[in-house]
Simulated assay, not measured.
Amino acid sequence: RSIVITSAVSGDGKSTVAFHLAEIACAMEQRVLLVDANLRQPVIHQLANLSNFWGLSNLITTNLPVTEAIRPAPFMKQLSILTSGPIPPDPTKLLSSEKMKRLMEDFQNSYDLVIYDAPPLLGLADASLLAPHTDGILLVVRMEKTDSSVLKRALDSLKTSRMNVLGVVSNDHKQNSAY
Rank of each mutant, 00 (worst) to 15 (best):
A125I: 11
L124G: 01
H133G: 03
Q108K: 15
P119A: 14
L103P: 00
S128D: 09
A118N: 03
G123E: 02
G136Q: 03
M104A: 05
G123C: 06
D106T: 15
E98Y: 03
P120A: 13
K99L: 09
L121V: 06
L124R: 13
G123S: 05
V114E: 04
A131Y: 03
K101R: 15
A118C: 15
L122Y: 08
P120L: 01
H133M: 09
L122N: 09
D117A: 03
T134I: 08
G123D: 03
P120R: 10
I137K: 07
P120Q: 10
L113M: 13
P120K: 10
L103W: 00
I115M: 13
A127H: 08
L130K: 06
D106Q: 15
M100A: 07
A127F: 05
F107A: 06
L103A: 03
M104N: 10
A118V: 12
E105A: 14
D126Y: 10
A131P: 11
P119G: 08
D112G: 06
G123Q: 05
L129S: 07
G136F: 02
L129P: 01
H133R: 11
A118Y: 10
A118R: 10
M104Q: 13
A131I: 11
S110M: 12
A127L: 06
L129R: 02
D106R: 15
L121W: 00
L121N: 08
A127S: 10
R102N: 12
V114S: 02
A131K: 10
D135F: 04
D135A: 15
L124E: 04
S110I: 02
N109T: 10
D117C: 01
Y111R: 01
H133E: 08
A131S: 15
L130D: 04
M104I: 15
A127E: 04
A118E: 09
D117H: 01
L121D: 02
L122C: 07
L122I: 14
D117Q: 01
S128E: 12
K99E: 13
I137N: 01
L103Q: 01
A125G: 05
Q108V: 11
L122G: 05
Y111F: 10
A118D: 09
S110H: 10
D117G: 02
L130P: 00
P132C: 08
E105W: 09
I137E: 02
D106W: 07
P119N: 03
T134S: 02
